[in-house]
Amino acid sequence: MRQRSKRYKKIKNILAQKKNFKLIDAIKILKETSTAHFIESIEFHSNLNINPKHSINKKKKYILLPYRTNRILKIAVLTKENNFNLALSAKADIVGNQDLIEKIIKKEIFFDILIATPEMIPELTKIGKILTLNRKMPSLKKGTITEDLENTINRFKEGKVTYKADKTGIIHAKIGSCNFKTLELIENFKTFYFSIKKDYSNLTKGNIFKTIYLCTTLSPAIKLDLSEFN
């Protein structure tokens, strides 16, 4: 049987005292009981009142939170020479063509994300194995193969959060970390909450949210009192 930590049991005892918690109380509990040797993420999990099989619900959505939840990414762009100035003006860190491919093969360059324009897809075969091993292979699904370089680069640079309901109708997302201030986490939560409500409410009758839970990387989940947001 799995042994739970003292911290986990402590939170469980707190949760046993009531079923649902106010947002500010849930955040305070998570922050005050965070004792891991690393900065834990604070995660949002919500079961939505939708049909997850509907094609509209399968589309990815993006939101820019008031307080970014990730570091600034180093972005490389693989494209034709006539797009170089456009990519650089959009704040891409590295832009290239065959020279970029050679540097990737020789492992002379580092980046977090590689964005490619469609005409460069055949060239990706030369570095496909390297990129796949490092989980940096551009794809349409990830939005990293695109003709709209400017908006795509801006989206990744700004730290926008990507989200969509999974096949069971649940949305999972990071809304901050335990080292965020309480008010920063509240602002991120509310921005994310109202974005989901706007994107999905016209697809169902009644309340779009069945349940909302908050947790950290290692904690049990805390169920929120939805009446606070109605």
Rank of each mutant, 00 (worst) to 15 (best):
E158F: 05
E40P: 00
S5F: 07
S89R: 15
K10A: 10
L86N: 04
K198G: 03
A116F: 14
P220V: 06
K136N: 14
Y193D: 01
K103E: 15
S46E: 06
E147Q: 11
K91H: 07
I11G: 08
I170K: 13
I115V: 15
S34R: 00
I175Y: 03
I104R: 14
L114P: 08
I109H: 11
A26T: 06
K60M: 07
K190T: 03
I171H: 08
K53E: 12
K58L: 15
I105Y: 07
Q3S: 05
I105R: 13
K157H: 01
I171N: 10
K181S: 10
K18G: 09
L88W: 02
K129H: 10
L131D: 10
V95I: 11
I63C: 03
N230K: 13
S195T: 12
K197A: 01
K190D: 03
I94S: 03
L114T: 09
K31M: 13
K59Q: 15
N49V: 08
K223W: 10
K136W: 05
P66V: 01
F189L: 05
Y213I: 08
I72F: 04
K10G: 02
P52W: 06
Y193H: 08
Q17K: 14
G96L: 07
E40S: 00
H54P: 02
T125F: 11
N188C: 04
K129W: 07
N97Y: 15
P66E: 02
N179G: 02
T146F: 12
I39E: 14
I171Q: 10
F192C: 05
K164S: 13
I175E: 00
Y163A: 02
K107P: 04
K60W: 05
Y213P: 06
A36D: 11
L88I: 11
I63V: 12
K136G: 15
E102F: 03
F192A: 05
F38M: 05
L78M: 09
F38P: 05
T69L: 01
A26F: 04
K59N: 14
K174P: 01
D148G: 00
T35Q: 15
G206F: 09
I175V: 00
I175R: 01
N202W: 09
T168E: 10
P66W: 03
L214A: 03
L15F: 01
E108H: 12
L214I: 06
F180P: 04
K223M: 13
P52H: 07
E150Y: 09
T125A: 12
K6D: 14
L64G: 00
F111M: 08
I56V: 10
N47Q: 15
K59E: 15
N134P: 10
F111E: 08
K190P: 03
I50T: 10
A26E: 04
I42E: 02
E184K: 07
L218K: 12
S195L: 03
N13M: 11
E187S: 08
I212Y: 00
A26D: 06
E102A: 15
T132M: 10
N83E: 14
K198Q: 09
F229M: 04
G169L: 03
K142Y: 00
N83F: 10
D199M: 04
N188I: 00
I186C: 01
V77C: 07
G176F: 05
L224I: 03
L73T: 06
S41E: 01
I222T: 09
K61M: 08
L86W: 00
F209P: 04
L73C: 05
D112M: 07
